[in-house]
Each structure stands twice: as structure tokens, then as C-alpha cells.
Amino acid sequence: MRNTFMNTLFERASKDPKIVFITGDLGYSVVERFADELPNQFLNVGIAEQSMVGIAAGLASEGFRCFVYSIANFPTMRCLEQIRNDVCYHNLPVTIVSVGAGVSYGSLGYTHHAVEDLAIMRPLPNIIVGSPADPMETIALTNFFVDRNGPGYLRLGKNGEPAIHNSTPELSIGKPIKVRPGDQGIIFATGNVLNIANEAASVASRNLGIEISVWSFPFIKPIAIDSLQEILADAPFVLTVEEHVRSGGFGSAILEACSDNDIDVQIKSVFLNESPLTAVGSADYIRSQRGLSVDSIVSSIKRCL
């Protein structure tokens, strides 16, 4: 996803000198072309995330459209107040780009896992939170944020995620995209783990004989209420799947939206357990150890039946 993001942003920035890419000294082997070919639109602030976001807000106030890039929690938690006060409060066109959604950087350990970021970014004013599931959604969301004149959060995986969509999807703000048909239950998923959700739906079809539709949510904020009302009308159940802890994440967003809008449906959620692991391992290993796997999704489906 990070390569796709960089390539897409590079293409847009080549044609638009207002686009500025700012890194907190990360992106080795990914950012060099942008730095070499568009030096006037590139800025490495060093390892200084708080000043990075403040500077981005200052640049944005002068008419630039800034993309601030770093890993996992560094461009969110380390500089949260700058995002809140300088960017969001002033409604400036700064998109925070975090690479390493969830436990993408599995073996690097908990310090490099972004598993509480959605809960932190969702409540901020004026911000739109994007969470692409594959390279195609990454292209669409990058273009969306380039075109948007306001704050954004783009939660990217790492690299090598499989393409789920055949082509770049047409985005409509807040609306999910159907990736698998079915009428005996619904899975809502976001980000990296859409392919796990898809696989779980396949297992349910094969082993349980039920057809479950799967929807990808490229947007976590806002969520289009009319879409929810339409999709969930008469649905037997909906299962949310996310690579984030329970509190304040994607499942919470769906629960809140349903509760606030009197959408009456059985909702279960699959998420990462809150406690960090002491052991390290691959992203798949950590996901499964923290409760997020094909098996855990299938188990949750069974509970809904």
C-alpha cells in the first residue's frame, strides 16, 4: 500500500505544485523518487513529529496541500495535539498518513503497532478517516484526500497486500463497497483484514452452507447512514472486523451509527484484544494471538446464527 500511495501521490504532485510531501525521516526506498524529482514539494523534518504537523499546518495555511508521513503511532499519538489544534480545529488540508495499520509491523513489537489510532482520530473535528483494504482502494483514497480541502487520516497497511478489487473503485464519501454477495448475514470490514474477512466468508459458505455478504469500508469517518439503513434492512446479523482494539474503533463506529439512527440489527465484532503480547511474530501471528483470524471470524458467525 505504501508504494501505491507514493506512486499515486507522486503522479498528482507532478501536476500540482501545491502538493507537499512531508516525512518524519521515514520511507527509505519509498520516498526517494519524490525527493529527487520534486525537491520543492518534499520536506524531511527529521525525527520530530510534533513540529512536523505544526509545520504542515503552517504550510497548509499558505495554500499548500500537505501529506505528512510516518510509521504506525508516530504521526498520530506523538503529535496528537498538533493534529487536533493546528490542523483539525483550523480545518486545514493536511492528511496524516500512517504506514503500518494494526500490527502490520508485527515483529517490530508493540511500539510499532497502530492499534488504538482509530479511536484517537475519529473524534477530531473536520477530519475524514480513510482505511484502504488493498492497493486499489489506496489509489482511490489518495486521490480523494488530494482533492479534499480539509484534514484527513489515511491508515495504510505496509506492502504486498493482495488486490481485492479488480480496478480502482469509485468512492462515495462514507459509503462501503460490496466485495462478496450473500443474504444470510453480513460482514463489515475495513483495512488490511478485508481479505481475512473474505476468506472467513468462504469458509462459512463451504463448511456452514451459509452465504454472507462482505463489505469493505474505505471510510471509517464519516459513515454514510443511508447506506447502513439500506444494507442492514432485514439483515439477520452484521459482524464487524477490524485490526484495532475494541474501544473506539470501526466496530464502535458501526454500533454508534446503528444506535443513533434506530437501525435494529444484531451486531457482533471481531477485533484485536486489548492486551499487547509479550512475544513477537508476523502480523498474521499477532492478529491470531490477539483474537483476529479466519477461525475467530467463523466462530463469531456461528454465534450469530
Partner: peptide, 8 residues
Amino acid sequence: PLGVGAAL
């Protein structure tokens, strides 16, 4: 930081 960004 805001001023540095604006000046830049």
C-alpha cells in the same frame, strides 16, 4: 512550528 511552516 506554525510560523516555520508559514515562512517556508
